[in-house]
Design a binder for these strands. Structure first.
Lengths: 342, 342
DNA sequence: CTGTTAGCGCATTCAA
DNA sequence: TTGAATGCGCTAACAG
C-alpha cells in the first residue's frame, strides 16, 4: 500500500511536499519536483487512506443515501422501479461530484444518526421519510440533509427538500377524469396520513371536485393494503357488480399496473368497464396493456436536483430555493376512457 | 461528538477501559465499571469514529458493491429490474452482517482497485463483470471478492463466484420450444462473446438442438442492439413476412417484454404468429400480455449466497464451494405456443 | 521552495 | 483490574 511517506521516500522529498503536490498547492512546489512526484504517485498507484483523511478533517467524502423502509415490509424497497431509478441517478451524480455513496435501508432514525456520526458523512439524501423522522433527524444531525419526496410537519424547521407538484398533478388527473364524465372516482393510496405525498395528492383530487362544483364521493379515499393477497381481494371487490366506482386513481403506478393486470385476468375490460390511472410514470407504465394513463415525473431531474442541492450545501454555497417543487404533466395513454352513461 | 476519551472522563476511568468494555473484553473489567461505562456509552450515543478504526486496523467495515457499466451506456444500469432486486437483497444481507455498503457503478478496473485501496474495503461484490476485468482485479486486489453472474477466462486463477445454471436453463427452454415444433428459433443476445452469461446460454441452446438430432439454424444467433431505435428496427425486421423465425428466445426478459409489447402494437400476435420467450423471470415478466414464458431464477437466493460467501471469506472461514451454480427452472406461461404447420 | 512537527480517535502492548 | 504510551496516515501550521 503506497502511502505519502512511501512516495516521499521514493521522490527524495518530504511528505509535506508530496501532500502539497497532491492537493494542487503547486505554488509551494518547484515544477521539477512537482512533475517527479506526480510521476511516482501515478506509478505507485497511490490512493489516500480515507481513514486518515477522515480522522484529520473530521469529515468523510461519503454521502449517505437512506431509503426509508416500512418496519414490517420485509426485505427490499429498492426494487421498486421508482426507487431504483432515483438511486441510479443519485449514484451517477454523486460519483461525478467526487463523492462516495453509502446505501442504507432503514426505518430507524437513530440508525441514521449513528451512521452520520460514525462515518462523518459529508451529507445525506433521504428518500420517502415520514415527517416524524425527518423532524428528529434534522434537529440532531450535523451533516447537510436533502429530503426527496418527503413532507414535513409544520414545526418551523427548515428542510431542504426536492419534491413534485403532487397536489397539482393529482388535480390535473382528477380534472381529466371528471372531464371524461366520471364522478365515482376512487383515490387509492396506502395511507393518506397528513402530511405525506399521498395526502398532497389527495388534496389535489378533492380540489378538482371542488372547482368543478362537485362533492368528492364520501367513500372516495380507498386504502390500498400492503399485503398482496389483501390487495387482490380488494381488486376483486372493486370489480364485482355493482361496481362501486367507474374510475380508480392510484397514487402509485405500481399498483395501477398490478390492478390492470389482475382485473384483465378477471375479464374486466380496462378502460371499457373501468378506467384506471396512476401517478409517477414508471417505465413499465407504457408496457402495460392498455398503456397506463398517468402523471409523468422526471426522475432524472429529481436526482440531479437532489444531488445538486446537496453539493451546494456541502460546499456552503447559498441555496436559493430550498423547497424545490418539480413540475409534472398529465400523460394520457389508453387506460382511461369516457364514463358510460348511467 | 462523543469519543472514547470523552466517555472515559465521564466514567472516571481510562480510555483503555472504555475500549475494553466496548469490545466485550469484560474479563478485564470489573462488572461495576462495565455497567457504568455501558450506561454512559448508551446515554451519550457513542459511535466510533470509523476513520480512526480504519486507520488502526487497516481495514474498514465497508463492502463495495460494484455494478459493471458498459462504457457508453449513459447513466444508470441500476434501474434494470434484475439489478435493483439483487442490490436490494445484498443491501439487507450485508447490513444484517454488520457491514456498510458502498455502491458504485463503473466500467474501469483501476477505479475498482483504487476504491478498494482508499477505503480499505472489507470485501467486494462485483456484478456482471466481463472476464478481462475480473481477471485483472482478482490478481491485484487485497480484499476478498465475490463475483455474481460473471464468467471467467480459463487462466488458472481462483474466482469466488455465484452464478446460475445458465447453460442448463437455456437448454431446457430450447428443448421446450423444440417440443412445440419450433425449428427456426433465434437466440437473441447483446453479445455472445466467450466467456459470458450469454455464451453459456447460447451453448445450452445449441446443445438442445444437438441432442434432438437437429442442427441449430446457421443464422440462429441474433445480436440485440443496445440502442433502442436500432432494436425497434430489428423487431420490425423480425416481424415482417416472410418471418425469418417462428420463435425468439431472448437471453434477457427485459428485451423479450419490450419485443412483445412492440410487436403487439404492430399487430403481430404473440404467441399466435410468433413465440417469444425470455430468461431471468424479472417481476414484470408476469405483467406482460401475454404473460412471458421464461426461465426462472431465484434472485434473493443469489444475493444471500453472494453475501454469505463474502462473509465467510472476510472471516477467513473455509468456503466449501467457491463456484456456486444456482438452479433455474422453466416457467411456462403464455408467450410460447405450438409452431404452426408449415 | 522544502521540511519538521503535532494531533486527529482508536486498538493494543506493556507496565503497574 | 486498570492505565499510560505508542503508532496507524494524513493535513496544516509553522519553521527554516
Amino acid at each position: 500500500m503506497a502511502t505519502i511517506k512511501h512516495i516521499a521516500r521514493l521522490a527524495g522529498v518530504s511528505p509535506t511536499t508530496v501532500s502539497n503536490v497532491l492537493h494542487g498547492n503547486t505554488a509551494k512546489v518547484s515544477p521539477a519536483v512537482r512533475d517527479r512526484v506526480r510521476a511516482i504517485v501515478a506509478e505507485e498507484n497511490y490512493a489516500p487512506n480515507q481513514g486518515a483523511v477522515m480522522l484529520v478533517r473530521n469529515r468523510s467524502r461519503i454521502v449517505g443515501v437512506i431509503l426509508f423502509m416500512e418496519p414490517r415490509s420485509g426485505s427490499t424497497a429498492i426494487e421498486d422501479p421508482f426507487v431504483s431509478t432515483i438511486i441510479g441517478t443519485l449514484e451517477s451524480e454523486i460519483r461525478a461530484a467526487g463523492y462516495f455513496i453509502m446505501l442504507r435501508a432503514t426505518s430507524d432514525k437513530d440508525e441514521v444518526l449513528r451512521l452520520a456520526a460514525t462515518w462523518k458523512l459529508a451529507g445525506l439524501v433521504m428518500l420517502c421519510v415520514p415527517s416524524e423522522i425527518s423532524s428528529a433527524i434534522v434537529r440532531r444531525i450535523g451533516s447537510p440533509v436533502v429530503f426527496v419526496d418527503c413532507y414535513f410537519a409544520d414545526d418551523g424547521q427548515a428542510y431542504n427538500s426536492i419534491r413534485l407538484d403532487d397536489e397539482g398533478g393529482a388535480y390535473g388527473m382528477t380534472a381529466y377524469l371528471l372531464s371524461l364524465g366520471h364522478r365515482r372516482i376512487a383515490f387509492m393510496a396506502n395511507a393518506a396520513d397528513f402530511p405525506s405525498v399521498d395526502s398532497a395528492r389527495y388534496d389535489g383530487y378533492r380540489r378538482a371536485f371542488g372547482e368543478a362544483g362537485l362533492d368528492a364521493p364520501g367513500d372516495g379515499l380507498v386504502t390500498v393494503p400492503k399485503d398482496l393477497d389483501e390487495r387482490l381481494a380488494m381488486y376483486r371487490a372493486l370489480a364485482s357488480e355493482p361496481r362501486p366506482y367507474s374510475a380508480l386513481f392510484f397514487s402509485a403506478d405500481f399498483y395501477a399496473v398490478e390492478a390492470i393486470d389482475y382485473l384483465s385476468g378477471l375479464g374486466v375490460s380496462v378502460p371499457g368497464d373501468l378506467s384506471i390511472v396512476g401517478f409517477d410514470d414508471i417505465w413499465i407504465a407504457r408496457l402495460s396493456r392498455p398503456r397506463l394513463t398517468t402523471v409523468h415525473q422526471d426522475v432524472v431531474a429529481k436526482g440531479k436536483a437532489a444531488s445538486g442541492m446537496l453539493m451546494r450545501l456541502i460546499h456552503k454555497e447559498t441555496v436559493d430555493d430550498s423547497d424545490v417543487r418539480l413540475p409534472v404533466r398529465l400523460e394520457i395513454r389508453e387506460s382511461a376512457a369516457e364514463a358510460k352513461a348511467p
